[in-house]
Design a protein around this nucleic acid. Sequence first.
DNA 1: CTTATCTAGTGCAACGTTACACCAGCCCGA
DNA 2: TCGGGCTGGTGTAACGTTGCACTAGATAAG
Lengths: 350, 350
Amino acid sequence: MGVGIGSVAKMAGVSVTTVSNLLNGRAERMSPETRQRVMQAIEALGYSPNTSARQLKTGKSETLGLIVPSVANPFWGLAAHEIEKAAMARGYNVVFCNADRDPELERRYAEKLMSYGVRGLILGSSPLSFSHFSSLVERGLVIAAFDRSAADADISLGCSVSVDNRLGARLAVQHLIGLGHRRIGAISGPVRTASRIARIEGYREALQAAGLPVGADLIWEGAGISGFGDREGADLGRAGMRELLTRAEPPTAVFVINDLYALGAYAGARDMGRSVPADLSIVGFDDILLSEIAQPPLTTIRQPIAPMAASLVDALLARIQGGVEGDPIHLTALPELVVRGSAAPINQPG
Amino acid sequence: MGVGIGSVAKMAGVSVTTVSNLLNGRAERMSPETRQRVMQAIEALGYSPNTSARQLKTGKSETLGLIVPSVANPFWGLAAHEIEKAAMARGYNVVFCNADRDPELERRYAEKLMSYGVRGLILGSSPLSFSHFSSLVERGLVIAAFDRSAADADISLGCSVSVDNRLGARLAVQHLIGLGHRRIGAISGPVRTASRIARIEGYREALQAAGLPVGADLIWEGAGISGFGDREGADLGRAGMRELLTRAEPPTAVFVINDLYALGAYAGARDMGRSVPADLSIVGFDDILLSEIAQPPLTTIRQPIAPMAASLVDALLARIQGGVEGDPIHLTALPELVVRGSAAPINQPG
DNA sequence: CTTATCTAGTGCAACGTTACACCAGCCCGA
DNA sequence: TCGGGCTGGTGTAACGTTGCACTAGATAAG
C-alpha cells in the first residue's frame, strides 16, 4: 500500500536518510551513482512525498489560506486567481474559502486552516475588526488583508495591501464633476467594509472640495437590507439606483461602489426609463472583466490586482519566513481612472 | 509551543487516549466529570487538533480537491462556491486549483493534492481525455467530473454529473426556430471540451430535425486562436460574432456556447451595427449571474448548478468511503430554457 | 606513524494522533 | 465464593518524514 521513503530506500539499497537527503536538496552528500539509483527507484515506484508527515515533522507548511466573501463574485474570483498565481510562483499553494463575510464562518475556516498547518492567511474584503481572529494570531497565525488601507490597521494585522480607495473615489467623482455634473449620487450597499467606507469618504471629499452638495439624499446605503450574498450584488445596485431615481431631486450622475453594483445600476436606470449615459452618468470601481463589454462600456476605477496580489504574497511570506520582526507592512497601490462610455457631459435640461 | 493532545491530557489529569476518545466521538467511554474536565482543558489551552498528524495516522482526509479552468470565470466561480457548500455540509473541505485547462498543470496539481492526502478530485470543464491522471488513479485517486456526460466516460472516471448539454442546445435552437429564424449560427470557440462538443451536436441535431441548413459557414469555432484564458472568454465571443456577421450570408440568430461568450457576442453585434434582439437574436448557455442584468437580459439555458454540485459530491463521497465498488456513477441534470430579452421573432426584411 | 579532514553515507528519536489491546474495580447472579 | 460483564479508563506501537549525531574508510598533512 504505502509507497513511502522506506520502499524507495529498500529498492535503491540505501538508508531512508539518504533518500530524505536527496529529497531535501542535500544531493551533494552522495555519489552520483547513488543519486541515480535513488532517483530511478522514485520514478519506478511512482513515489510522491507525504505532505502530512513532512508537515508534522517540520512544523512548516507550504500552504497559504485565502478567505474571500465568495469566489462567485467576479472581482474576488479574479483576485483569488491572481493570489494563487503569485503564491505558486513562490512555491506555495493556496486553499480558498468562501465565507460570505460571516465572521463566525471566517473564524471557523481560519481555525481549520491552522489545523492544516497554515501560518499565513489572506483576507479578502476585510471586516472592520479582526478581533475574531485574535486568539489565532496569538497562536502564531499571520494575517494579511487584501483590500485594507494602511491607515486603519488593526493590531493583529500582519501586512496589507490595497488600492488607495479614497483617491480612487475622488478620481471617479472628479471625472464626473469635470463633465459638468453637480448633483452626484453614490450607491454603496449595506455591507460596511474598510474599503467601502474609504470610497465613500473619497466621494464626499471630492464633492466638498468642489463646493458641491453632499447629503444623505444623494447616497443610497441600502440600510436595513440583509441576507446579502453575491447573487444579490448586482441586484442591490439595481435596487439602489431605482430608489435613488425616485427621490425628490435625483442625481444626474452616480458613483457606484463597485462594478458589479454598477452593472446592476444600469438595469435599475433602465427600469426607471433613464438611458446611460445620455440621461445619467455612472462610474464604477474595480474594472472587472465584464465592464469592458457592458453596454455602454463602463467608466471605472481600475485596481492593479496582479501586482497587488504579488506584493501582498511577498510581504506575507517575508513575515512568515523571517519571524515576526518589525512593524506591520502596509502597501498602497494606485488606482487608475478608465474612461469608457458610461459617463458623459451633463445633459442640460434647461 | 506545541499545544497538543498531550498538554490537554496533562492539564485534565487523564491519559492521551481519553482525550483522543473524546475528540473522536467516543465520549460515552468516560464519566461526565472527566469529560467536563477535558473539555475545560481544551478550552483553556485553545487546543485545536493537528490535521497533519491525524491524517498521517488514519490515512484518511476530509479534504476534496477541485480543479477548474479559472475561478475568475463567473460560471466556474459559482460552481466552485456551490461545490464547497455541498462538501462543507458533509464535513469536507475543498481545495481549489485554477489550472487554465493545461493538462500538465492539472497533473501537477493533482499530484500535489494526493500528497496532501486528498483521495477525491473534482474536475470542472473536463478535457477530452483523462490519461494524464491514469497513474494517480492507479494510486487510489477517485476522479469526479463536473460537466461531462455519461455517454463518453473514460475508464478512470469515478463519477460524473452534467446537464444534458445536447438537450440544452436543442432547447435553445428550437426556441430560435420557433421564433421564425431559419439561418441560425453558432459560436463555439477554440477550446474542445466534452460539454462544448455535446452542445454543438445538439445545435446540429435541432437544425437537422427542422430541415434547416447546418453548414460550416454558420459556425465559428475560433480555429487557430490560441492563448486562451478567461480574460479572453468574452473577447472571443465578440470576435466570433464579428466574423460571423461579415460572412456572405450571415445568420439572423446565433446560439452561443456559453453566457460569457454571449455577453461578448453582444459587444460584437454592436460593433457591427446590429441591435439585439431587433436585428439579431442570441441565446446563451449557463445562466450566469450577469445574464439577467445584461441589456437586453440574456435568453439562455440554465444549469441547476447547486443540485448538480450536491449530487456529485454525494456520489464522490460514496465512492471514496464505500470503496471502489461497482461501475462509475453518472448523473444527468435537466437544462431549462430561460426566456428573457435577447431572442425575438425574426425581423422579415422582405 | 599519527592525527585531522573529507566523503558518503547510516541510525534513531521525535512530530501529534489514533486505536488496538489491555486492566482495575465494582456489581450481579448462582 | 467464583466467574462474567460492565464502567472508566490507561499504555503504546505505529503512521512517513526529517535532521541531528554519528561513523567507516580514504586521503592528506605534519
